[in-house]
Nucleic acid binder design. Structure first.
Length: 489
RNA sequence: GGCCCGUUGGUGAAGUGGUUGAACACACAUGCCUUUCACGCAUGCAUUCAUGGGUUCAAAUCCCGUACGGGUCACCA
């Protein structure tokens, strides 16, 4: 049973709009793994596909987790990925502020509204009292649920506590019986038993809202029509629905997406290495390639097309085709995408991209030499950092030939002759160009009557120590006349 | 532990009861090509859809059980 997207009539700040609006709502930890990014991609694509808005909201209600510069970091990441943020902390629209810590008053107002409606109540229980209840429940092997004792407090007692400045939280009254149905675009209808629902805290004693509460209030106030988030929130959605109902608000369309697992099949974590966007970026993966790879993790288009520009993606994306099961991150395929994107770069863009990854000292070489060196590898790279190692053969002063390669050099009587001929012919070159070097290879072939592997490999091994590299004339050219001749001696 | 969700090859996946003798892509293997490696190209790679049962003339596709995997039960988000 498929649900189609609705263009709901949404009231934003007194204005009625007919527009799809999605949001990316990270907490500002200064770290974004590819699972988060992938969710952002889906959110962006749904919004843009329907000519809607994509908002950025910072969820920093946990004051202990704040990281300086995290918002800039998020903007930079989204920008690199080619997303246009329609509204956010740095480009506010009509629903600001877009940082939750700056909306404290709003949450309080709405929490109090619920108290007045009789849907929520003040709770003065202390952490230690709660802890005692929790232990009591654990001792009887029962799951802990707050017993709602504060909901029975008299008006006078509440007023007195408030006057005396007793710390409090605000909790929502949850139904104790029946079921709540969660409707999700991907997973269909999910039934949740109300009896397992705790009287959830809406406002914490520090005056900040809980994540769940802030989320619902903001999504409503910001006119979010499609809530796209990780599947780990699926169960919690029952609580969200109850909150929407308590307020009498229209619920958004939920799209829960399965997780992205690490290469080992386990949950992604900081420790899992390259699972962060910035790490990947710094290693020389192009954002376009990362986005292209990620969008295909857990989503599949209707055709066999795999390589997409952002515009094509916006057209092709179909939220109904997001998969239910989690998928595993695989660098090999990312590398394949990245190599494709690198090859598609024009030379100038490529050089701009790759230059920072070259750590070898080229100050004594010409710009032309360095560019030629980098260009040669354009079709061979799968990510930026790879260049450094590939290019080693042009910077080593010592050549180390492995035992295996030494054996190869002695395996054919023609090899010493080939090498000598190369040396003699190369020495004759006055104009050291790739073309002239290529001619020398022809001459050696004719003079020695040798071709194929025997013609090429001895040369490669003698001048670089390894059996692979770029086109041989290029390699010889770049190493330079003097060094080549010295190494052939 | 209760509840919720998932399970097609090493990986991403197509597939919504019958031309599926399970597409396509990555990876892998082999071959071809460029007088070498790489690039590129071609071919091969799941007798089978976690598993057991059921429904049906017909099931990867529908139903039930089992196993396995994951998620969730905070004054964290």
């Amino acid at each position: 049973m498929k649900k189609t997207l609705f263009y709901g009539k949404i009231s934003i700040q007194g204005r009625d709009v007919m527009k799809v609006r999605t949001r990316f709502a990270p907490s500002p930890t200064g770290f974004m793994h590819i699972g988060n990014l992938r969710t952002a991609i889906f959110e962006y694509l749904v919004a843009k596909k329907y000519n809607g808005d994509f908002l950025l909201r910072i969820e920093d209600t946990d004051q202990n987790r704040k990281v300086d510069g995290a918002i800039e970091f998020i903007y930079k990441t989204l920008e690199l990925c080619g997303f246009q943020i329609d509204e956010g902390p740095f480009n506010e629209g009509d629903c600001g502020p877009y940082i939750q810590s700056e909306r404290k008053d709003i949450y309080k107002k709405y929490a109090l509204e619920l108290v007045e409606k009789g849907e929520a109540y003040y709770c003065f229980c202390t952490e230690s009292e709660l802890e005692a209840m929790r232990e009591h429940a654990a001792a009887r092997k029962k799951p802990f649920l707050y017993d709602g004792r504060c909901s029975k407090l008299s008006k006078e007692k509440i007023a007195e506590n408030l006057k005396n400045g007793v710390p409090y939280v605000i909790r929502q009254k949850m139904p104790k019986t029946g079921t709540t149905i969660v409707e999700d675009l991907i997973y269909g209808k999910i039934k949740i038993d109300n009896s397992i629902l705790d009287d959830q805290i809406l406002l914490k004693s520090d005056g900040f809202p809980t994540y769940n509460f802030a989320n619902v209030v903001d999504d409503h106030l910001m006119g979010i029509t499609h809530v796209i988030r990780g599947k780990e929130y699926l169960d919690q959605t029952a609580k969200y629905n109850l909150l929407y109902e308590a307020f009498g608000w229209e619920k958004p369309t939920y799209i829960h997406v399965a997780m992205v697992l690490g290469e080992d099949g386990n949950k992604l974590s900081k420790r899992n290495g390259d699972a962060s966007f910035m790490d990947l970026y710094e290693e020389g993966y192009l954002p376009e390639a990362i986005v292209n790879y990620l969008v295909l993790l857990g989503w599949s288009p209707e055709t066999n097309q795999e390589v997409y520009t952002m515009d094509e993606l916006i057209k092709a994306f179909n939220e109904n085709r997001i998969s239910k099961s989690s998928s595993q991150y695989d660098v090999k395929k990312l590398k394949w995408f990245n190599a494709k994107y690198i090859k598609a770069l024009d030379d100038e863009k490529y050089l701009e991209f790759i230059r920072p990854f070259l750590t070898h000292d080229v100050s004594d070489k010409s710009q032309e030499w360095a560019d030629k060196l980098l260009l040669i590898y354009k079709d061979h790279l799968s990510y930026g950092k790879e260049i450094d190692e590939m290019v080693n053969i042009f910077f080593n002063d010592e050549i180390n030939i492995s035992a295996e390669n030494k054996a190869f050099l002695e395996s054919d009587a023609n090899i010493p002759i080939v090498i000598d001929t190369y040396r003699e012919e190369l020495a004759k070159i006055t104009d050291w160009t790739v073309e002239n070097i290529a001619k020398v290879i022809d001459i050696v072939k004719e003079k020695t009557g040798v071709k194929g592997k025997i013609l090429y490999m001895p040369m490669r091994i003698k001048i670089s120590g390894v059996e692979h590299g770029p086109e041989l004339p290029d390699e010889i050219y770049l190493i330079g006349k003097e060094k080549v001749i010295a190494r052939l001696s």
